[in-house]
């Protein structure tokens, strides 16, 4: 085996090839099949209102999953995003309800606070993971507890409420039936897609996931790129916090319990390999929709909560098995 440079590794695994398009088409077809199924078997699924609902319900998971894609691509995992989102929302909730602020100042302050909390938590995850080459699984599990505890401590376990009206308006605003918050999520998908495909940084992330040593030998600072990936993941948790607050007009220290698992599921169903180096954020977009459409459609069909949970689990496992075969048959 010859040692490739980071750029070569990245290009070899490049996600702009026909193969990757086929990958994504596979999951896309699965999504279409689901949509078709629910359209036939429930009368309300394919209505404008329900589509708006699905878009709203997919938004937070999609935002978290975009950040998660970066971390999983380098072969890491971030279990802390749900808790970090709650912590960010609590701090932003404190900021937005500060006495004596105009509505505009309050909102700006809240957005800054939420994203800052997310970025700091993500950077801590990344720095510790990279500095001591520790498994991100454990470090982010620690952060999951730290952020949750901090959220509860800072809020004294109380729900924070009464936000400026303009903020609520943003959370429920529609643009031709498309929730504005969903458009924020879609913009993030696009930005991530651009970064991952058309910047050296993005291609090096694939390289790190494939062969960290090769990237290092090619003279790149793996350390810095790893921190960046986790920081981006934290940032999306902060953005998700803002969306949560705008949509529900509260900050809750118990928000987002288990959200990390949904975000990871979206990424994996979307065809990104848990081992890193392979996958795309477009797949993540589709993965998030598969989860969202399932959650929505199974309620419309009238399936019990417990059956719904079981089916979601089955879908995740099937997706990973499919991924195994995809990897096998598309390998060079």
């Amino acid at each position: 085996m010859t040692i490739q440079t980071g750029d070569e590794v990245a290009q070899a695994s490049g996600n702009f090839s026909i193969r990757t398009v086929l990958h994504n088409a596979g999951i896309g077809l699965a999504l279409l099949a689901l949509i078709l199924f629910f359209s036939i078997f429930t009368e309300h699924f394919l209505t404008a209102n329900n589509i708006t609902n699905i878009l709203t319900q997919v938004t937070i998971n999609l935002i978290l999953a975009v950040g998660m894609t970066f971390v999983i691509l380098i072969g890491g995992i971030d279990l802390s995003v749900g808790s970090v989102m709650a912590f960010a929302s609590v701090i932003a909730g404190k900021a937005i309800t500060l006495a004596g602020l105009g509505p505009f100042e309050a909102i700006v302050l809240a957005v800054i606070a939420a994203t800052a909390v997310g970025v700091v938590c993500g950077a801590i995850n990344g720095t510790i993971t990279a500095r001591w080459s520790l498994p991100s699984f454990i470090i982010t599990l620690g952060m999951l507890n730290i952020a949750r505890g901090a959220a509860l401590q800072a809020s004294n376990a109380q729900t924070i409420y009464s936000f400026p009206l303009a903020f609520e308006d943003f959370g429920s605003a529609m643009f031709y039936g498309v929730p504005v918050v969903f458009m924020v999520a879609l913009a993030l998908v696009f930005i991530a897609w651009f970064i991952l495909n058309f910047t050296v940084f993005g291609r090096l992330l694939y390289g790190i996931g494939n062969n960290e040593e090769a990237v290092r030998l090619a003279g790149h600072s793996v350390y810095r790129y790893k921190i960046a990936a986790f920081t981006i993941c934290g940032l999306t948790a902060g953005i998700a916090a803002v969306v949560y607050m705008a949509r529900l007009n509260i900050s809750s220290p118990i928000a987002g319990i288990g959200f990390e698992l949904n975000a990871i599921a979206a990424v994996i169903i979307g065809g990104t390999s848990l081992n890193g180096g392979r996958g795309s954020v477009i797949g993540t977009l589709i993965g998030a929709f598969i989860i969202g459409v399932l959650a929505n459609g199974l309620i419309l069909i009238g399936l019990s909560d417990f059956m719904r949970q079981m089916i979601t689990g089955v879908v995740i496992i099937i997706a990973v098995i499919l991924d195994y075969y995809r990897a096998k048959y598309t390998r060079r």
Binding site: T56, Q57, A295, I299
Partner: peptide
């Protein structure tokens, strides 16, 4: 017409109830 859990949580209740309302306007 329907009875479902939202695990005590605001966001989940928001989603679950929206879907129930779609199914039973």
């Amino acid at each position: 017409v329907d009875s479902r859990t939202a695990h005590w949580e605001t966001e989940e209740a928001n989603s679950v109830f929206s879907n129930m309302l779609t199914a039973h306007p």
